[in-house]
């Protein structure tokens, strides 16, 4: 693992797994978080508590549970996903979703309570009001996506367990760093760590650029 040609497949796998996990988490989590932020219903506090608990899920525990579910004798064994990128994406979705939902929910709920009424008294329909609230919360929505991406990219425990760290198939930057550290190749592990940080920095610079545009 010393040349770019050796690092590139690992980096590309990291980007694919994290990117797809964040995309799917956002497609599910952003609408659900918006709905949670806008709605009042009995049992909401229970769901909020569950979401917050989900933020504290230990990745290794998630990995272990998915391992048992996806193993050949497990209920989802027929999918044949264990030690595949699909299993890694699934693990990261489970870890990302609470963050996307929770941050989105807080961002939407933080829009001043009087704003919907003021927009309605200017002639906005309920759907137009909802849309405008989401737009007002857009910095928070971007933060939700950025947080999920950061968590995905840096996650190691769950993806190791369900992905197996197979070279050329399921090896990502974080699992490669653990492997190289175990082998005593600290300079390689540090180089991979630097690549991971640079990738995270580039993506966050891109997201923050959008975010600052909408902040006062």
């Amino acid at each position: 693992m010393e040349t770019f040609l050796q690092v590139w497949p690992v980096l590309w796998m990291s980007l694919q797994v994290s990117g797809l996990a964040v995309l799917i988490s956002s497609l599910i989590g952003l609408p659900f978080g918006v709905w949670m932020g806008l709605s009042q219903f009995s049992g909401k506090s229970l769901i909020v508590s569950l979401v917050h608990t989900g933020m504290a899920l230990p990745p290794v525990v998630v990995g272990l549970l998915l391992y048992l579910l996806l193993s050949r004798s497990g209920p989802l064994g027929s999918l044949g996903w264990l030690f595949s990128p699909q299993a890694m994406i699934l693990a990261q979705i489970v870890l990302d979703l609470p963050f996307v939902i929770g941050i989105t929910m807080i961002a939407v709920a933080s829009v001043p309570a009087e704003l919907p009424g003021q927009l309605r008294s200017l002639g906005a329909t309920p759907n137009q009001v909802r849309w405008e609230i989401v737009r007002e919360a857009r910095a928070g929505l971007l933060l939700a996506v950025a947080t999920a991406f950061g968590r995905s990219l840096s996650e190691v425990g769950a993806v190791w367990l369900v992905g197996g760290n197979i070279e050329g198939q399921t090896r990502v930057l974080t699992t490669a760093i653990v492997l190289e550290t175990g082998k005593g190749n600290f300079s390689v592990a540090l180089s991979l760590g630097a690549i991971l940080l640079i990738v995270a920095l580039i993506i966050n610079l891109f997201l923050v650029r959008f975010q600052w545009r909408v902040l006062p």
Binding site: P112, E114, L115, G117, Q118, L119, R120, S121, L122, G123, A124, T125, Q128, E132, R135, E136, V214, P216
Partner: peptide
């Protein structure tokens, strides 16, 4: 409702330009 408009005591504006805000009722 669109035949009625209200000015509130503590007006809130959208995180947009003055033009966007003054034209909001027209856009909807």
């Amino acid at each position: 409702l669109r035949r009625v408009a209200m000015v509130h005591q503590r007006p809130l504006m959208l995180s947009e330009s003055v033009r966007y805000n003054i034209e909001y009722g027209l856009h909807v």
